[in-house]
């Protein structure tokens, strides 16, 4: 199991997190239909680093983007996503 450093809770076991999708798969609400379907149905799917959206579902329930190498599982960056929050 991997360990992610949640921006709010610190290092936690991957069992508390659920993977949503990669950032390139986000369908923004105002996208034109063709762009929306392109985002939904094509992926870079690199054999290396990609930006992934995870949720700390069983922890602080917040969402975050994690830059992870899919071959070595090395995590290079984690940033919080969501409404403005008190520290």
């Amino acid at each position: 199991m991997m360990q992610f450093t949640c921006p709010h809770c610190g290092p936690r076991d991957q069992a508390e997190f659920i993977y949503e999708r990669t950032v390139d798969a986000v369908v923004s609400l105002d996208a034109a239909p063709e762009d929306a379907m392109k985002s939904l149905f094509t992926r870079n799917n690199p054999r290396g680093v990609d930006e992934e959206i995870w949720r700390h579902t069983y922890g602080c329930r917040a969402w975050m983007v994690i830059a992870r190498n899919r071959v070595t599982n090395e995590i290079s960056a984690t940033r919080a996503v969501g409404p403005e929050a008190l520290p």
Binding site: M1, Q14, Y19, T22, N45, E52, R70, V71, N73
Partner: peptide, 11 residues
Amino acid sequence: WPSYAQRGNPM
């Protein structure tokens, strides 16, 4: 979750 690592995990 995505992976090319050909490695399992306990969970």
